[in-house]
């Protein structure tokens, strides 16, 4: 009995160490944002935040530039999510429920695109975007980001639709339902959790997208937060406290949503990466 109890204690300590390592850098952003200069740049580091300085977050948001960044990121991420889900649902449905010529090729393409780095396609996409006048615009970034989120979203949704018993489609069809009706009335309500997970993945991959945003947008007023936050690196004019406050404001939505949708996201990501 005693050794079992000891085992639990040892495990608990190990878990706390792991959690400490996992959380520390995020905690450190918080501490840094709330520590005055004299303690930050002293001989030793302060490990606890000075909670009387919480106003630094309000100040960061009050800065019009930061609000603009976050708003641009939101627009890009929301647009990418809507477009990826809108295109991904029919694609996932076709991949799950139909046999057709070229299906294997489509499946392979969806897997293959996941190994393409954005940095590889940024040059030719730049040329395409210039031709269609999509440079320096938020909708241009939505189009570029969707190209990379769509395959993942489609594979997650295909996996989810695979999990819906075919008998349900059959029953609906007996009642005269056409494929589109079957999709919207029967399947979509049943795959809502997976759709939400796919939406979270699409949203935050666009929220975090950097390469296209830094290359395709020139106006400062159109910059998303990823580019804004990255521009702090190596910069001297902004105080480290403000930088960390902004970075934390940029991080928290992603962390909150992933924690909330974690179970679906993980099963979705593995399904998307695995099955074709």
């Amino acid at each position: 009995m005693r050794s079992a109890r000891l085992g639990v204690t040892a495990r608990l300590i190990a878990v706390l160490v792991v959690l400490g390592l996992a959380i520390f850098p995020i905690y450190w952003m918080f501490v840094t944002a709330l520590t005055p200069d004299e303690n930050l740049f002293g001989a030793t580091a302060d490990l606890l935040p000075d909670l009387s300085r919480l106003g630094v977050f309000a100040n960061a948001l009050a800065d019009g530039k930061v609000g603009r960044w976050l708003l641009n990121s939101f627009v890009i991420a929301a647009g990418t999510t809507a477009l990826s889900i809108g295109l991904g649902i029919p694609l996932g449905y076709a991949m799950s429920r139909f046999t057709f010529r070229g299906k294997a090729a489509v499946g392979l393409t969806l897997l293959f695109t996941q190994m393409l780095p954005e940095a590889l396609l940024v040059v030719p996409l730049f040329a395409v975007f210039r031709r269609f006048d999509l440079l320096n615009s938020l909708h241009g970034l939505i189009l570029a980001d969707t190209a990379f989120t769509l395959p993942v979203v489609a594979l997650i949704l295909k996996g989810a639709i695979d999990g819906v018993p075919r008998d349900l489609d059959e029953a609906a069809r007996v009642d005269g339902g056409r494929p589109l009706t079957v999709l919207t009335r029967i399947i979509l309500p049943l795959i809502a959790p997976a759709t939400a997970a796919a939406a979270v993945i699409a949203f935050f991959s666009a929220w975090n997208e950097y390469v296209f945003a830094v290359t395709f947008v020139f106006d400062k007023s159109l910059q998303p937060a990823s580019v804004g936050v990255a521009s702090f690196i190596g910069e001297q004019d902004t105080s480290i406290q403000s930088i960390m406050a902004v970075a934390l404001l940029f991080t928290l939505p992603a962390v909150a949503f992933y924690l909330f949708a974690q179970r679906y996201v993980v099963s979705g990501m593995t399904a998307g990466a695995v099955k074709g």
Binding site: I23, I26, W28, Y210, I240, I243, F250, T251, Y258, Q262
Partner: peptide
């Protein structure tokens, strides 16, 4: 849940905090 935080954090913010650390 908490252990997944590093994976959920945006890569850009991770780079920033790493540079500071």
């Amino acid at each position: 849940s908490l252990v997944t935080i590093p994976w959920a954090a945006p890569g850009i913010a991770v780079a920033l905090i790493a540079v500071w650390m």
